[in-house]
């Protein structure tokens, strides 16, 4: 027996749900970012799985190409967001998201 696209779809859905849970429930900036990485990795699992185990055989691996592009964008987003998180800490001395509500931007 071999793993098919359905297996990858289920795994991707489970990982997406775990990431979404983290994004909703975490209250600290870095924890939120980590949950976001988990959430954004879920589509990569589906893309790679579909491309490798799907039907056909003549289509170029666009799924893999999309996965690489999405991975690069995820990295950029997480890097920028962690820099902003450190800036926020230096300004507020807090890593809790609730404290951002009262930030004075001026």
């Amino acid at each position: 027996m071999s793993a098919g696209p359905g297996h990858f779809a289920v795994l991707s859905a489970i990982v997406f749900a775990i990431g979404l849970y983290g994004v909703i429930s975490r209250e600290d900036t870095l924890g939120e970012l980590m949950a976001l990485v988990v959430l954004l990795t879920a589509p990569l699992i589906a893309l790679v799985g579909f491309a490798q185990t799907g039907k056909g055989g003549s289509v170029p691996p666009f799924g893999n190409a999309f996965a690489v592009l999405a991975l690069l964008c995820t990295l950029a987003e997480v890097a920028a967001a962690s820099g902003v998180a450190m800036l926020v800490w230096r300004r507020l001395q807090s890593s809790q998201l609730d404290d951002l509500v009262d930030v004075d931007v001026n």
């Binding site: 696209p5 579909f50 491309a51 490798q52 185990t53 799907g54 039907k55 056909g56 055989g57 003549s58 289509v59 170029p60 691996p61 666009f62 799924g63 893999n64 190409a65 690489v68 592009l69």
Partner: peptide, 23 residues
């Protein structure tokens, strides 16, 4: 109906030739 299939072209050639701007 929602998966396209595996391919013979290398990933690098797809990134280079088909999606260079996005890459």
């Amino acid at each position: 109906g929602w998966h396209a299939g595996a391919g013979v072209a290398a990933l690098v050639s797809v990134l280079h030739l088909r999606t260079p701007y996005a890459f």
